[in-house]
Amino acid sequence: MGYLKLRIDRIFGIRGSALGRRGALARARDIVLLGTAALTLFGCRLDMHVQPKYLPYAATNFFGDGRSERQPVPGTVARGQLRLDELMFTGKENGVVSNRFPFPITRADLERGRERYNIYCTPCHDYTGSGHGMIVQRGFPQPPSYHIQRLRDAPAGHFFEVMTNGFGAMYSYAARIEPADRWRIAAYIRALQLSQDATLQDVPASERAKLTENSAGQSAGSSR
């Protein structure tokens, strides 16, 4: 047993004879070696993990406001940000709110408009545009319904303007929705308005019979 213990002591240099005989220099060397080994094993792992570059939204102490994202210098225009098309970017033509869309609206545009509307507007204006969205139910001021006469008569550019600049208690959505998508939402709101104000005359003659049939069936059902 004593033999085994001696072995262990020798190998690991613990206490006793082995270490005692060695000089302070050797001990210092050991510490440096061990330290270097520990650093190579653990310390250097970080050099590729954390690279000297800014990832999106990273904080910095180089600029006064602490943001690595910079605002454009006043008076300059970034590529793709030249906004000369008055109708496209302000909803106005010659300073008057316009009822024209800057590009022809196709079915795909309307579908994109519906998707965007459902993301950004339904929390307050709800899916039909009547203004009873979830956030309104939790105490947000109620917006007007899109189906009041004033908004039915409003030009398409008015909806674009409201989204771009905000309106009363409603904040601007310009930062989150691109101009073309704002026009598509405006087109979808127009579609919503039509859908809530439709009469039998709007239905193609061939489909009308089906509708009257159904509603007759329903009213018969409810009277029973």
Partner: peptide, 18 residues
């Protein structure tokens, strides 16, 4: 590539009122 974390303005669209 980046999902983005909302700027304060996004919170304030609702929390300016509620």
């Amino acid at each position: 590539s980046f999902a983005g974390l909302p700027p304060t303005q996004t919170c304030m669209t609702c929390h300016s009122q509620i």
